[in-house]
Nucleic acid binder design. Structure first.
Length: 549
RNA sequence: GCGGUUAUAGUUCAGUGGCAGAACGCCGCUCUGUGGCAGCGGAUGUCCUGGGUUCGAACCCCAGUAGCCGCCCCA
């Protein structure tokens, strides 16, 4: 029976990007590519899913991203039916097999005909049963029932808990759970929630460090986090990012690289036309500095914790660094009194940071040192930064409270955390969705023409209007000729009245070419230019040239 | 994950416990091969979904779903 179904929709937190907006996305991406290539970056494309361990180890097991926002599943579960059957048989001295073992062809399901305490029983082994009895099971059950045979489904305990037991019981199917998983060789897979870990994994896997060269890699692609969707925050979102990494001898640890990346970002935002951006940066020190500072922070928080708001009390326990960028106005005085990480940097980290700042100053890139700026991901060391645009107080942002446009930092220990060689690096990720929103909002606030954002597709060179359906074939042939000559051409339908063709043509093209009986016979076409309203007769061999104008 | 708010035509949005609306867009005619203007006409709806209250629900109630805003977190 056909069930009336609701139309399918894009799943929560995902969306379609349609023209003309996609033109803006392409423009943003092509400007990014252009800037990256001028700084010597090459494109890397890593898989959209990776082993879950990559993110657990790289991003940090305790971060919200990893602990509750990832799309993770078990891939390649292989069912071990033989083990399931053996386990069952061991348990059932009361069962006697009748006949030989069988396997059903449709999927790995094994069954035996047995007598259990004298009752003839069809014993089916399924490692991955359907949540509710499927068609196959229902059909088999009714056949067995007709023959007076009992139906016993043997499943693993861990699956049993997920089954629609009522569904099976109401049919009269007996279910028997067995302790154990009975699956072999599955892999935990995760849709990437960010791209740095993947890039570093690829760096290690392809021994890019052995080239001895500094690697400069950029990427543009979708990332996935299972967060509550909001404006500028989607479950599938796009990031434009870049990483600079390599062996120490390639200069990957040099503060020059930090400054270069930051200066490149300033250039990129300027070329994109983002107004009013702010660069905030900080140093969180080496991994050791960071650990030491977190301990000190914890100690400093302990006596005053109870005075903080509820959220901050929780953070003080779970992730003390995050207390620092709390926005709670009542807690600001207390937070200001907390120890600053700058005071706990070792000498080399301090010098490194100073060198970054002076290089930025030399380039004339404006910045603000924000001693409270910390990053959520575990792998960050030393320089961390964020580019923001004005908040919702300024309508030009378009981002509400989500005012961070991009963020990044240095990750000197990440490669080793992932089991690779020492490969210090620095990188960033731009939230492309937010970047686009900001561009749109800034254009709207300035009352700019949409054209400024390239939202209107450019007018085509010509629109061919065949008069009558019998001229359609000739129209398409003419269009082919012109298109091959490099012109952009749309073909109307001869079924349209000429009036309609003119309206359609004026919308999309600069010229209309009328293709009727006379024109086909004389090979001289009637061409009207919308901008001037002038209509002329043009010979076929001069048509392409004339339409280009 | 928590709180608030919204959901009506292709789009932007009115609307009231008693026939489903406007503007723009779309289609047709005035006007058979000459548009933009104008006039006239037309089509388009699961009024988010599912329950409930009611003689009667797009409207009131409950639940769900989705968008948006704030929180959490983050790009």
């Amino acid at each position: 029976m056909p069930t009336p179904s609701n139309p399918l929709k894009a799943v929560r937190g995902t969306r379609d990007l349609l023209p003309p907006e996609t033109a803006l996305w392409n423009r943003v991406e092509s400007i990014a590519r252009s800037v990256f290539s001028r700084y010597g970056f090459g494109e890397i494309r890593t898989p959209i899913f990776e082993d879950t361990q990559l993110f657990a180890r790289g991003v940090g097991e305790e971060t919200d991203i990893v602990s509750k926002e990832m799309y993770t599943w078990e891939d390649g579960l292989r069912e071990d039916l033989a083990l399931l059957e053996d386990t069952w048989l061991e348990k059932h001295s009361d069962a006697t097999y009748v006949g030989t073992p069988f396997e059903l062809e449709t999927r790995p399901i094994a069954w035996r005909l047995a007598t259990i305490n004298g009752v003839e029983t069809f014993v089916e082994f399924r490692v991955l049963p359907e949540i509710s009895p499927d068609f196959e099971v229902r059909q088999r059950f009714s056949e067995l029932k007709a023959r007076g045979v009992q139906y016993l489904l043997v499943v693993p305990q861990w699956k049993y808990d997920q089954l629609n037991l009522i569904g099976y019981f109401t049919l009269g199917i007996k279910l028997e759970p067995l302790p154990g998983r009975f699956v072999a060789k599955s892999q935990d897979i995760t849709l990437r929630p960010e791209n740095t870990a993947g890039v570093v994994r690829a760096y290690i896997e392809h021994n890019l460090g052995d080239t001895g060269q500094l690697q400069k890699l950029f990427y543009i692609g979708p990332q996935f986090r299972r967060e509550r969707p909001q404006r500028g925050r989607y479950r599938q979102f796009w990031q434009i990012g870049a990483e600079v990494l390599g062996p120490i001898t390639s200069g990957s640890e040099s503060p020059l690289r930090d400054a270069e990346v930051l200066e490149m970002l300033a250039t990129l935002l300027d070329e994109l036309g983002i107004k009013g951006w702010r660069l905030e940066l900080n140093s969180v020190g080496s991994a050791e500095d960071r650990t030491r500072y977190v301990d000190i922070l914890r100690q400093a928080l302990a006596p005053i914790k109870h005075q903080l708001c509820e959220d901050n009390q929780r953070r003080a326990e779970t992730n003390p660094l995050r207390v620092l960028d709390s926005k709670d106005p009542n807690d600001q005085a207390l937070i200001d009194g907390l120890p600053k990480i700058a005071d706990y940097l070792d000498e080399s980290s301090r010098q490194h940071f100073d060198a970054v700042l002076s290089a930025l100053a030399a380039c004339g890139v404006p910045y603000t040192v924000n001693p409270r700026l910390v990053r959520g991901l575990d792998y960050y060391t030393r320089t961390t930064f964020e580019f923001t645009v004005p908040t919702s107080a300024d309508p030009a942002s378009g981002l509400g409270t989500q005012n961070a446009l991009l963020g990044g930092g240095r990750y000197d220990g990440l490669s080793e955390m992932l089991g690779g060689p020492k490969a210090p690096g620095i990188g960033f990720a731009i939230g492309e969705d937010r970047l686009i929103l900001t561009l749109q909002a800034q254009a709207a606030a300035k009352d700019l023409e949409p054209r400024t954002l390239n939202l209107e597709p450019p007018k085509l060179d010509a629109y061919i209007a065949p008069l009558g359906p019998e001229r359609n074939a000739a129209a398409l042939a003419l269009a082919r000729e012109l298109r091959r000559a490099g012109l952009s051409v749309e073909v109307g339908d001869g079924a349209f009245r000429l009036k309609k063709s003119f309206e359609a043509a004026d919308r999309v093209a600069r010229h209309i070419v009328i293709l009727g009986e006379d024109e086909l016979a004389s090979r001289i076409f009637t061409v009207k230019t919308f901008a001037t309203g002038l209509q002329t007769k043009i010979a076929r061999n001069e048509l392409a040239q004339s339409l280009r104008a």
